[in-house]
Nucleic acid binder design. Structure first.
Lengths: 237, 237, 237, 237
DNA sequence: AATGAATGAGGATTCATTCAT
DNA sequence: GATGAATGAATCCTCATTCAT
């Protein structure tokens, strides 16, 4: 925990174009922030991990705050683009689109666990950062909302599905997805071989929610007052 | 802002039984950790908020780490007990039991936002703390698992529902619940009057998942290979 | 210039009442700021010179800025009080009063060269500090202004001496006094034994200015257009 | 703000003769040192203000210390030359010569406020720099001393005026002049239109001191032991 | 039972200065 | 002649932690 002298992996000022160095710094920073959190990650450690001296980090990224922000923005952008890419196909059934999107999402989160963790941490790090994640969530929620609307239309019964309700559901789904991604990653950390694949995780979530969503589309709701539960699906003639 | 400090009896050298002082400290600490995070909350601030001097905090709680751990344990215990209490009634349909449990859960999270935040933060604070939250999750997941098993039994079709799968679903549900709780609390912070009640939040979650769970109980799964989606539930007679 | 470990004059946390420690710190700070200037004096050095650890300095004095401000204020107060004390006697001729004030001033500046230097430095250290010195100057200038007015009255010819002009002269006198004080102190630093005494310095200044002031009181001015100079005093009957 | 940077020819790799570049750097440096002080002015800022890159500054001026020294020397030279020029006329009365010198002095200080400020700052910046200003003062003091001697001779009464005393008076006068220059410049900064002209400032100083100096030439001194004051000049026949 | 006094260790940030091109 | 890339060394400041009372 004390000295940070000897490690020196091959440093000693290798000249490199600014863009490259900047990427290295962001990589190191994302890793550090993911592992230790915003407060605990030290600029010393980040600089050393990036293979540069601290002043260079400050020269390029201004301050710890801006460095963190740069990380957050990079990861936000990457994740959103991935999901957008995954749901580009528009003329297939909504559930297939959702399925594609979820697979893209879980593939990305599996491939970039540190990035995901950084986004997660950003949410509890005060206005400027949380704001960024809120904006990201809004973007993804929008994508999902469109999908749900399309599903409702496909189902023919766009009757009374209030826009606000759709948005709420979209939130729930996104939240669940984030939650699952974390869970899946944690699993993988504990037992790398055994962790669920992106496909499996996506399937779990689809199974978990699609039937419920469909029912809601049809105007069927679960309420505490219904007599018993396990038969309602068939009981409606 | 939901302060839970106010006990402040007048400070000075007011002699007080250890238990009381300790509670004051934990209250102050939970509030501080919730608001600023583990790293940023300072022992100075906590001591001052608790109305005692720093050395006393150290005398009773040993170190910042142990103080945080004490907070986490207290909040874990409270939350688990609440949920257990909520699902004590055993001879009613499983969905009603789940409904009761969720209501208890969301009521508690609404009443103790700082406690919830602390638990949330603990998850990213390194092994000893994260471990505690994992254990809590396991306890709650167990409760849910039992419920799901009972539901399957009630439905008569306990066919092929692998224990591992049930556990996965329970995890998904718990994750979704946590996610929703956060969302609901955030809402309440932004627009106190308008935030959803615990009942509404619980209903949202039931709507979101119950139909899906039921289908799974019956062995029906969503798969990417099915022809189209919106009609499968009712269309297959 | 580098390590600041070994010196340790007898430190090792001796318990002392806050007031005492605070005074020690201010003493050390005044010395350091005088010797190296605001920017260059390091908190490390000041703390070590005061025989305490840096955190204690911060605990008591908040920041480098506030520490400097505390020094400035202390020295301002001391100097102003000294001058006020020196000119307390009111029913003696104005020149005697001025003489007394100047002696008090030069005695003080000779006894507290560091304090004087700090005040001098404060003037170039940005608004908050310069302001403080400006205020001090105003206080002293006021004292002098009153004296000059009294002198004019004593002389019977209070004719056309505009208030603004008196104030200008007072400024010039105060400026000259400051300048002389510095010069005297510098002398003393170079050749301690030989430096002028406070009395001598005060006499020099009186000689330098009193005749001129007197003439001004009488409405006689030096102007570039007068034919020759050395005889004007007697030549105008 | 009195910028004197504007030369900026377009930056880039504009090849320029060394002398020109050096002048630009010195201009920028003088402005920076005047505004922020030796410690706080950063080489980055100076280089940028000069429109060159930092390494070039180092190539030409070696180090911050030498850069500052170069500034000081340049400003010293300019000021001394100005005063020397102002007092070149030798066969006019001494007071006229002094008057001319003061006018030159105050004109210069009004025209080059940054230079003056740099000299002022140099006095508190440690031996090598302070030394330079002391030397300058000595040169100017010498000029004044010669003038005073001439005045004494003119007055016919070169009786007992010790050389040391003349030197002391010269110092006082130079100090007063510096002080007034600063005061005048500060005035001009606060209310540009209203600040005193160089002529006015010079007149103020002449009024302030000439009568006193004349008396001293004549061997008349102010002493604390004289009975009363306001009438001594004329009353003692 | 409770605290005022004190500190070691480290963290963010900046600066003067130098290579390699 | 001129610079983009890079760094060692300090500086201000904070914090968890402990004595002596």
């Amino acid at each position: 925990m004390g000295t940070n002298v000897g490690t020196r992996t091959g440093k000693g000022h290798k000249r490199m174009p600014r863009a490259v160095r900047e990427r290295q710094m962001l990589d190191a920073a994302v890793a550090a922030f993911a592992r230790h959190g915003y407060q605990s990650a030290s600029m010393d450690d980040i600089a050393e991990a990036a293979g540069v001296s601290k002043p260079l980090v400050y020269l390029y990224l201004k301050s710890k705050e801006e460095l963190f922000m740069a990380c957050v923005r990079r990861e936000v952008k990457a994740l959103v683009e991935t999901v957008r890419e995954g749901t580009r196909e528009r003329d297939i059934p909504a559930d297939r689109q959702l399925w594609n999107g979820l697979r893209a999402f879980f593939t990305h989160t599996a491939a970039h666990p540190d990035g995901v963790t950084v986004l997660h941490r950003a949410r509890t790090q005060g206005e400027p950062f949380a704001q960024e994640v809120v904006a990201m969530r809004a973007q993804i929620t929008d994508i999902v909302t469109v999908l749900l609307a399309q599903a409702a239309q496909d189902a023919g019964c766009d009757s009374e599905l209030a826009e606000r309700e759709v948005s709420g559901l979209a939130h729930a789904l996104v939240g669940a997805a984030e939650s699952l991604a974390e869970w899946a990653n944690a699993r993988r950390d504990d037992a790398p071989a055994e962790g669920p694949s992106a496909k499996e995780t996506a399937a779990t979530l689809m199974n978990f929610c699609w039937a419920g969503l469909e029912n809601l589309m049809k105007g069927e709701r679960w309420t505490p007052s219904r007599p018993t539960s396990p038969t309602h699906g068939a009981a409606s003639p």
